[in-house]
Design a protein around this nucleic acid. Structure first.
Lengths: 226, 226
DNA sequence: ATTATACACGAACATTTGTTTTTGCGTCAA
DNA sequence: TTGACGCAAAAACAAATGTTCGTGTATAAT
């Protein structure tokens, strides 16, 4: 058996092209199309390297049928790398950190600062509602206090920056006195504010408006099952 | 302009076959393969109906290249939705219709009336996991049977196309006998299959594997408040 | 009846496309 | 040196595959 993962520069080029072509066209390229793109003069050389990729487990071929190949392995420079190509575009919001949905935890930086390039996340337009991506930011949820609101640990919530909230809205609230940020339902309660978890195991938090700074309201949530 | 929502039985058969074949093989079928499957004796007849489907906006063809076709419209009996031509790009998956998470509902076979949002939706890479956007599709959830799995009515689930499933995975299953598609947890149960809702108010569905076609497994979910 | 249209068949045709064969160039080890 | 082996090129071959053309059959509209 050979060493895996050792693709020649040419084979990597082929992998990338086959992936891009299939994405764009809806069907895989022919041997000659691969050869033309990768500057390979002969179809047999393409065929040779294609079989190499099969041996390495990167693709599967269906013999004798035209365009009979399918990508089953990682695409060098696209899937393997952490950096995703083509990630520049609209509907990108900052993934600024984590927020407690259980016991409040402190957020190191204020929301909206120290955002790295990799901390942006692409968001479907429908998750932004009528708001612009520039108004929005994202947080990873920690804790289970919003479990009854169908938000659980690990979820990513999309919020719109705003300093006020209506009764019943789900908001990210910063408690300056404790330097803590938390995710709760917002309610006016007399002169004060009630931050209501959506979990019977947790008690609501009562604070003075001066000690409760709304950072944004929740627009949407997304979750990945691993 | 013609009416595009009326496909002949033969054309529906072709649509279903092209979809299933592409799913299974990774590339579209040839004209002769379509003809053989759909009991069409002549390639020209297949070609004729293929062009009909192009006119109707169900597929796109790349002239002169083998297997040069791509499905861009709804698949009768499988999906619903509005048709879109050439709307492809990175991290975009087809939003193909709705799926029942409660009592199974049958998907209407005539299409073209649903004025939904875009038929394609941008999906953050993290919601696709290790899979490619070309393998994925999206469905809007109807019903509350998966409420205990934190999926509720109106949610959009991202799925990866596959015909098999592991025990416990959440899958979209098509029940050909009833022409119904449903979202359930999948379990092998002796010789049969158990489709388990995540809601105490709903009973599991027991079916024979022959009457249960897995369409894909759920990768992720997203929800918008409002 | 006539025309138009949708749909279908079969056969030939022209390309596309995967496969095979032959040849050659390097590198590396015995 | 010699020989094995990975890699590459060109040409020829065989099969797969899309396209076209002539024809036929219903059905509905005029």
């Amino acid at each position: 058996m050979k060493s895996f993962n050792r693709l020649s520069k040419r084979q990597q080029h082929m992998m990338r092209f086959m992936h891009a072509y299939t994405q764009k066209q809806g069907f895989p390229p022919s041997i000659r199309e691969i050869g033309e793109e990768c500057d390979i003069g002969s179809t047999s050389v393409v065929n040779y390297n294609l079989n190499k990729l099969v041996d390495a487990g990167y693709i599967v071929r269906s013999g004798k049928v035209s365009r009979g190949l399918r990508i089953v392995g990682p695409i060098p420079g696209v899937t393997t790398g952490r950096r995703v190509i083509g990630a520049v575009g609209p509907h990108r919001v900052a993934l600024v950190g984590r927020i407690a949905a259980g016991e409040p935890i402190s957020l190191p930086e204020d929301i909206g600062h120290h955002i790295e390039e990799d901390d942006y996340i692409t968001v479907p337009p429908n998750l932004l509602g009528s708001y612009d991506a520039s108004e929005a930011f994202a947080l990873t949820v920690r804790g289970d206090s919003m479990i009854d609101a169908m938000i659980k640990d690990g979820d990513i919530v999309i919020l719109r920056r705003q300093n006020t909230a209506e009764n019943g809205e789900m908001v990210a609230a910063w408690l300056p006195e404790d330097n803590e940020t938390t995710l709760k339902h917002f309610y006016h309660e007399g002169d004060g504010v009630r931050l209501q978890p959506a979990n019977r195991d947790y008690e609501p938090i009562y604070v003075h408006p001066a000690n409760c700074e709304i950072k944004g309201k929740v627009l949407s949530v997304m979750r990945s099952f691993h």
